[in-house]
């Protein structure tokens, strides 16, 4: 009520010339808060739609029976008191929750999920350990060549992963020895890693390391020297101080690096489809391989693929929800006050 009163007060003098838009602009100029709020809602709605609509669409697809999927037209006609219109949101044609069960019947989808999960956890652990050590060195030690090395890592992180695929695939087949560059001198023959976790965990770790190193370097650099000195005098080694004091105090940074790495590997498609030579759970084919195996030469079961996608995404959603709370609590409890 108060707002409408005020609006009337403001509008009265300008009323004669303006239409609604002009009046709104007039008010916005006098009170820019309104514009910011409007912009906030526009942006919010935009992101809500772009992020949530795909999930809604997946759900619609998953629930529609296979037989009716191909008939298309998910925008239903509504006939309301003679006025016919198209309902703007797609809805499921029919209701077939059984798709979520047949997902597991047709393909051992849980095994694909387990593969992805195992690959993601292993990579995350490797990345965190190495990035922690690197972050400690870059963030807390002063050594010659630090800038150059950091730049090198930055350069590698911008390298297109596709550039690595062919040489890595060749190396992981275990058929040819690795040679000294530009010569024929063999160094060693790598073991055959195709269709094993090694062929995926190794490139994933290498590719996702730079980001984690950057995150952890900035976090570790902020821990006061005094705390590390105190831990060392109290009886830890440098490494001990890293794990007992610096890492716990950088919990938000470690969690961020861990989640980003985990999600990136869990969703990885490019390397895993190549390094696992077929979409078989036994070949360590990940989640994406599982989803794609509902597609055969002649049929594509869109409803099952959609259902599998939803199932596959759930663990990550849970992880983010849980971890987000941890990150927030870590931020508030961290209190790096001295």
């Amino acid at each position: 009520m108060a707002t409408s009163d005020r609006r009337d007060d403001r509008v009265e003098p300008d009323e004669p010339e303006g239409g609604p838009l002009e009046r709104w602009t007039q008010r916005a100029m006098q009170n820019p808060e309104r514009v910011y709020r409007a912009l906030f809602y526009v942006v919010m709605i935009f992101f809500m739609v772009t992020t949530l609509f795909p999930f809604y669409w997946l759900l619609v697809l998953a629930l529609t029976p296979q037989s009716r999927l191909l008939q298309g037209s998910f925008l239903p006609q509504i006939d309301l008191f003679g006025a016919a219109a198209e309902f703007p949101l797609p809805v499921a044609k029919g209701f077939n929750p059984a798709a979520f069960v047949s997902v597991f019947e047709q393909v051992p989808f849980h095994l694909f999920m387990l593969n992805s999960f195992a690959l993601a956890v292993t990579t995350t652990v490797i990345v965190l350990v190495i990035a922690s050590l690197a972050g400690y060195a870059f963030g807390r030690l002063d050594f010659p060549g630090r800038g150059a090395l950091m730049l090198g890592i930055l350069a590698i992180s911008y390298f297109p992963p596709a550039a690595f695929v062919i040489p890595l695939f060749e190396a992981f087949t275990g058929n040819v020895p690795i040679t000294v560059p530009f010569t024929e001198i063999p160094l060693f023959t790598p073991p055959r890693l195709l269709n094993t976790p090694g062929s995926m965990v190794i490139p994933f770790s290498a590719l996702f390391l730079p980001l984690s190193i950057f995150i952890l370097t900035t976090f570790y650099a902020q821990i006061p020297d005094g705390l590390e000195d105190a831990a060392r005098v109290e009886g830890t080694t440098r490494i001990g101080a890293l794990f007992r004091v610096i890492i716990p105090l950088s919990a938000p940074g470690v969690a961020t690096a861990a989640i980003l790495t985990f999600i990136a590997v869990y969703n990885e498609y490019f390397f895993s489809t190549i390094m696992a030579t077929s979409f078989a759970a036994g070949n360590w084919s990940p989640l994406v391989g599982g989803i794609l195996s509902y597609q055969t030469q002649y049929t594509t079961q869109f409803n099952l693929m959609a259902a599998a996608s939803i199932v596959g995404v759930l663990p990550v959603v849970l992880l983010v929800v849980v971890a987000q709370e941890r990150i927030v609590s870590g931020l508030t409890a961290g209190a790096l006050k001295e």
């Binding site: 005094g226 000195d229 109290e234 001295e338």
Partner: peptide, 20 residues
């Protein structure tokens, strides 16, 4: 010797208690 093997204890200017 590293600090941990010296049998010394230290009180720091910035107090340096472990905040966690």
């Amino acid at each position: 010797l590293p600090p941990k093997d010296r049998g010394v204890a230290m009180v720091f200017q910035n107090i340096a208690l472990f905040p966690h």
